[in-house]
């Protein structure tokens, strides 16, 4: 019983950890989404670069995130780039997930109907304008459920950042358990908060799906 009381007294620490996890997730999800869209475009339009993008995606798909994080964390100083743990973590999460997002966009593109594209071309849209005004929204609509799942994966992978001492949710829970020996209470609360974050993402995806269904 006491453990929950101690935890309640230090709820500020846990909340700060939760905020850091949310911040990491939002920043890297947005950056990975943009980079993923960019790589998807590269792959679609430049046949010469396309195998490079393909290779990058395959490499990321065969690498555990923690190993990639370690590589980014230890390789950057060698190239003269000094990043703190937080930024290195964001960079690793962004690059890693951009590969997966690119793959998801390609999968959505494979089932994208040809008619709107043809119609857009007939109305004189082309290049980036065609992509931005005609393709982008429905493409994201098709990819939305899998994009949501990948965002949940980002939330889960962000817990690995505790290992390079980023002070996120798992770090906060671990600090409290190490100081007050209340492992059960602190980790259960952390786990429930992660669950909450994932449920928020799922609810967001469901809502946007409903809305885009109404628009049609």
């Amino acid at each position: 019983m006491n453990a929950w009381l101690i935890l309640a007294q230090h709820s500020g620490l846990i909340l700060r950890g939760l905020l850091v996890t949310a911040e990491i997730t939002v920043i890297s999800a947005v950056l990975a989404l943009l980079l993923g869209l960019f790589l998807f475009q590269l792959r679609l339009r430049f046949p010469l670069i396309s195998p490079l993008v393909r290779g990058f995606i395959d490499l990321m798909r065969c690498t555990p995130f923690l190993i990639f994080l370690y590589l980014v964390y230890y390789a950057l100083p060698g190239w003269g780039i000094e990043l703190d743990a937080f930024n290195a973590g964001i960079l690793a999460l962004t690059l890693y997930n951009a590969a997966y997002f690119t793959e998801l966009f390609s999968a959505a593109w494979a089932q994208f109907p040809r008619e709107p594209v043809e119609a857009g071309l007939a109305f004189g849209f082309h290049g980036f304008g065609l992509f931005r005004r005609i393709i982008l929204r429905p493409l994201i609509g098709i990819a939305l459920p899998s994009l949501g799942n990948q965002t949940i994966q980002i939330i889960k992978d962000s817990a690995f950042l505790v290992i390079v001492t980023v002070q996120e949710l798992t770090y906060a829970a671990n600090e409290i358990q190490a100081t007050y020996y209340i492992p059960f209470a602190s980790f259960v609360v952390a786990a429930l908060l992660y669950w909450g974050l994932c449920l928020i993402v799922e609810a967001g995806v469901r809502r946007s799906l409903r809305r885009s269904a109404q628009m049609l």
């Binding site: 492992p183 980790f187 952390a190 994932c198």
Partner: peptide, 15 residues
Amino acid sequence: RAIPSVTLILLVYFA
């Protein structure tokens, strides 16, 4: 499906 393996393993091993 929502809880990270890192958190879960700390929970299981310590708690």
